[in-house]
Design a protein around this nucleic acid. Structure first.
Lengths: 156, 156
DNA sequence: GGGAGTATACTCGGATATGGAATGTCCGAGTAGGTTCGG
DNA sequence: CCGAACCTACTCGGACATTCCATATCCGAGTATACTCCC
């Protein structure tokens, strides 16, 4: 069980778009070159973020991607859910109700195993939801400054 | 990103083996029929648990699988790590150091994104390590009683 | 010179191949118990 | 009748197919810009 690499890409792109928010939309080719990533596949991932309402995409010759909301209102949980699906990590198939072991059982309450796994997963989600893109931006102001400088030079 | 179904199988089998600890080793065929699971693949997963030191396997005509330690000393984290690998969910590829965005950067500290994801993952692991197989057994004493009864009937 | 129409180049969007991991299946090695033969 | 050797049946262990999803790629739809032509 591992997370897709698109999550790292999406988070870095969101932080970068947060820093370049005053510069207007950033085209996908620029972002791909920025991190040396496969352009077409990165586009596919950003499209998922767009569908989830995290990014906005504007077509046309001066188009590109941009944040749909202020960075303070975008949590890591939003990005992960958009890119990896909102489904839970552990899926209970209720195997306790099948086979010879279920002979003469009622199963009133929920499955204890599923409940325990759910508790752990909720702790994970809570931590993810507590961090925002703005927090990540605040942690590295120097990188923000450099990003704006490099981007302005590329644009010129 | 989803967890393999083997985790659910492994946890249910561990709880069942905890209840049947006085009955000696349980063969794989019995366990597979118990939950109506594909026998050969379940065996592969239990072999992983054996390699991790969670189960013991005894060959021979009266052989089978059994818990290697008391249920109080087996955490959900142990089982998940044995079946899904101990690698972290989020792997940082340091894409910030690649491409045009890294022009003239020093990168003194660790990647803030990786740190944030690590925090969330640690919360998840902590919750998993706090729950043991014995806890799961204690939550459903009725199922334990029924399991012992059904198993004795099958054995007869 | 001004404005409308048109052509164009650049963007996003979804449909289409490919590779690797999770899943599923198979055969061989080993051990405990039962059986048989000899004492 | 007792004991030891052998044989058999059942177990686990690892090697071999198959299916599904993440990854990677391609072509088509749409729009703002820039240019051109007409008034």
């Amino acid at each position: 069980m591992r997370m897709g690499e698109g999550v790292e890409w999406g988070l870095h792109c969101c932080v970068t778009l947060g820093w370049l928010r005053d510069e207007g939309p950033v085209p996908i080719g620029r972002l791909a070159a920025w991190f040396d990533l496969p352009q077409e596949y990165l586009k596919k991932r950003l499209q998922a973020l767009t569908k989830a309402g995290i990014l906005t995409s504007t077509p046309g010759v001066r188009g590109g991607f941009a944040l749909a909301r202020p960075p303070e209102r975008i949590t890591l949980m939003d990005v992960v859910a958009a890119l990896e699906g909102a489904a839970e990590l552990f899926r209970c198939e209720e195997i306790r109700q099948r086979g010879a072991g279920a002979e003469g059982a009622r199963f009133s309450g929920p499955c204890g195993i599923a409940a325990a796994m759910r508790r752990a997963e909720m702790a994970w989600r809570r931590e993810l939801a507590a961090q925002t893109i703005a927090d990540l931006m605040a942690e590295a102001p120097a990188s923000g400054e450099r990003t704006r400088r490099n981007y302005a030079r590329l644009r010129a």
